[in-house]
């Protein structure tokens, strides 16, 4: 299959290769870090160690990789659809809306299976993102910073509603858990929904060209015969589903969807056919680094990966913001 980038695939391939080469040792290292020691030499002969590996370490590492990749992909899709560099599910009210949905289903049907809760969260996230898209339509696209700003305030608004309901319903702890993304509770049997998020990210890859064209605007999309509304709808559904899946299983992880696509875009642009695999790999790798750091910094206690990434991500975002003018 000759793709659009046929004359020059060397550079993107190099980045992808680099990401993959870094990911493998990181993942192996992640398998070895945890509260209990996992001796390398007797690993294969020790049934206890193998059990730890299968029940806890491998699921955890897989969960981190899937989450990081899916959130980064969701972020880049959101940025192309809103046509703004500075948005992600955490700055468009998507995550907060998902939490509201989750809160509602927890209050109304506490015993509902996790899939039902996830679907409720996804439905709410879809509605919340839709409202944001309408809001964003009121703002001309050249008001670049107004869009993330309104998104942040809109998210804060939804969060205030959620906090109110949570306080009155006595569910404040739940909110705390959903708000800080962490992987310490991940065991085999408790994270498998994340494969769905990974699958969605993969699905998005098959629509990579459509998303890239949608990122050029409605007029260009229509001119090229793209069904713009459908691409928009597919994108929003993907982003909402991914966000809800991640919140239900590990909690909110802000900034991944913002920082990773921006860094990758600086290196290799926004042709998703080329860059989406690198975005996914970089998101997975960065989140894994943060998770490993969170496990090591205060060993044997843990700092949530979301917190570690939050500090790093906010710093990078500030750099992008303030360096924007200087860079032209």
């Amino acid at each position: 299959m000759a793709d659009l980038a046929a004359p020059n695939t060397a550079a993107p391939r190099r980045w992808l290769l680099l990401a993959a080469v870094l990911l493998v040792p990181l993942a192996l290292f992640s398998l070895l870090v945890g509260a209990g020691p996992l001796p390398l030499d007797t690993l294969l002969s020790d049934p206890q160690a193998l059990r730890v590996l299968a029940v806890s370490r491998i699921p955890r590492t897989a969960a981190v990789l899937l989450t990081g990749a899916a959130m980064a992909v969701a972020g880049v899709i959101m940025q192309l659809l809103v046509r703004n560099r500075f948005v992600e599910p955490g700055t468009t009210g998507t995550s907060e809306a998902a939490m509201l949905g989750l809160l509602a289903v927890t209050l109304l049907a506490p015993g509902a299976p996790i899939l039902v809760k996830m679907l409720a969260a996804a439905g709410a996230a879809l509605a919340g993102t839709g409202v944001f898209m309408l809001l964003a339509r009121c703002i001309p696209p050249h008001q670049v910073l107004l869009i993330p700003l309104s998104g942040l305030v809109y998210g804060g608004l939804l969060m205030a509603v959620a906090t109110f309901i949570a306080i009155e319903g006595g569910l404040l702890q739940y909110l705390g858990v959903w708000m800080s993304g962490e992987f310490s509770g991940i065991l085999a049997g408790r994270y498998e929904l994340l494969w769905l998020a990974g699958g969605l990210a993969l699905l998005a890859y098959f629509a990579a060209d459509q998303f890239t064209i949608a990122g050029l605007g409605r007029d260009v999309s229509l001119n090229l015969g793209l069904r713009y509304g459908q691409v928009l709808g597919f994108g929003i559904i993907t982003v909402s589903l991914v966000s809800s899946l991640v919140i239900v299983t590990v909690g909110m992880l802000p900034f991944i969807g913002l920082v990773v696509p921006n860094l990758v875009s600086r290196l290799m642009g926004d042709n998703l056919r080329e860059s989406l695999p690198v975005v996914a790999a970089a998101g997975a790798g960065l989140l894994l680094v943060c998770d490993i750091l969170g496990r090591l910094l205060r060993y044997p206690y843990e700092i949530p990966a979301g917190t570690v990434f939050g500090i790093f991500g906010a710093a990078v975002f500030l750099y992008l913001l303030l360096g924007r003018r200087a860079g032209g």
Binding site: L4, N84, R85, G215, V220, G269, D270
Partner: peptide, 12 residues
């Protein structure tokens, strides 16, 4: 807003 190369744009 998105960073697309000229060649890729023409390709679209």
């Amino acid at each position: 807003a998105s960073r697309v190369r000229v060649r890729d744009l023409v390709g679209f």
